[in-house]
Every structure is written in C-alpha cells, then in structure tokens.
C-alpha cells in the first residue's frame, strides 16, 4: 500500500493480500489472512462474531481470539459473506471460528457459515453453506447450492441441489485445475 500511492481498487498488504477498498471487513483483529488472498468489493467478513463460550482447555493462549482464519490463495468474489457459525450449546449461544484453508474460491453472492473449508474448494455463485458444515479438500459446489447445516462433504465431491447432495466426483485430471495461483496473478490493481 505504501509503495503504490495511486489509489487502486485493492489495498495490497505485505503478505500479498489484495483487499478491495469497497469490502466490509468487521473485526479485523480477529481475522487471519494467510497471504495472497483476494477479497473483492462488497465482500462481508464478520470477524466480530467471536466465540463467547468458554473453552474447555484451560491452557488457552492469551492472544487475539480468532473468528475467521483464511489460508493462502483464496478468492472471495463480489458480494459474498463469511460469518463464523453460531449455535446454542448447553443453554448458551456462542459463535465458533470459521476456518478456510488454501486455494478456496467463493463465488459472488454466496454466504458461508461453515466450520471448516479444506483446500482447493470451489464454491459457486449464490450458494449458502450452512452452519458448521465441514467441507474437505477438492470439492466443487455448483451455483445455487444450499449446503444444509452440519453437513460433511468428503474430498473429491461435486455438490449441488437444495438441500445439497453429492452429485458427482472430481475426476483425477481436474485436480490440477483447482489451483488458484494463476487466478491470483490475474488480479490487477486498477
């Protein structure tokens, strides 16, 4: 950001994240970006939805609590929303962290409340990923899918429908094409 004084669409961080000036990121101290992640305009990331339920392990590190953890080479398209999932547990409502690993693409207008998204996951446009869903690696979620809450999607699945169900498998050759490095490089700052 310091080098490029000319105001572009994106703010570039030291680790190579490209964050749109028109995105809404709330609770920035509770969000971890692994680097080289693109956040487009009108993306909402709710870092303010922190875990309030006390952790069972007493030896928790004193540091910034994490609400959203994002890996490298992720791409969040225009208008998508990331919110940590919340639930009532033993009479107390609490949010839980949302973890997104590397090479995750989220299409425009999608709402994600998953607990975990593995690497090389492609979520299409206008999807809803329900609370506490666990999506493993190499999964493609087609446009308009509603992934029900608590669903576990195993690796190499193609999911579609309302409610989402596994409709196919990722072919062996498709695995290479789910890398988002090229997509990141193609994002210019203008």
């Amino acid at each position: 950001m310091s080098k490029k004084s000319v105001k572009g669409e994106y703010i570039e961080t030291d680790t190579g994240n490209k964050v749109s000036r028109r995105s809404q990121i709330i609770g920035t101290t509770n969000i971890i970006l692994g680097g080289k992640t693109v956040i487009q305009a009108e993306v909402i990331i709710r870092g303010d939805l922190l875990r309030t339920y006390p952790t069972s392990t007493a030896g928790e590190k004193q540091g910034n609590p994490v609400a959203v953890a994002i890996g490298r080479y992720c791409f969040f398209s225009r208008g998508c929303e990331l919110r940590p999932p919340g639930k009532l547990y033993k009479g107390q409502f609490s949010h839980y962290p949302l973890k997104i690993t590397d090479h995750v693409f989220i299409g425009p207008g999608s709402i994600v409340e998953a607990a975990l998204i593995g690497s090389h996951v492609n979520i299409g446009a206008n999807c809803v990923v329900g609370k506490f869903a666990i999506i493993k690696d190499y999964v493609r979620i087609l446009d308009g899918t509603v992934v029900p809450p608590n669903m576990v999607i195993p690796s190499f699945s193609i999911v579609a429908g309302r409610p989402g169900r596994v409709v196919g498998e990722i072919a062996e050759g498709e695995v290479d094409g789910m890398d988002l490095r090229e997509v990141y490089r193609a994002v210019g700052n203008h």
């Binding site: 009479g91 029900p148 169900r165």
Partner: peptide, 22 residues
C-alpha cells in the same frame, strides 16, 4: 429432505454452577 440429521437432547439444558460440565 436427505440433509444430515444431528442428535440433540430433549431435556432442558442444565443450569446453575458448573453447568458446562454437566
């Protein structure tokens, strides 16, 4: 609807001291 089912208790959640360990 083929969505996954989750197990939940019908009993009211415990309250009082140390409820989280009950």
């Amino acid at each position: 609807c083929i969505a996954p089912l989750s197990v939940s208790s019908l009993e009211a959640p415990p309250t009082g001291l140390g409820y989280e360990y009950a």
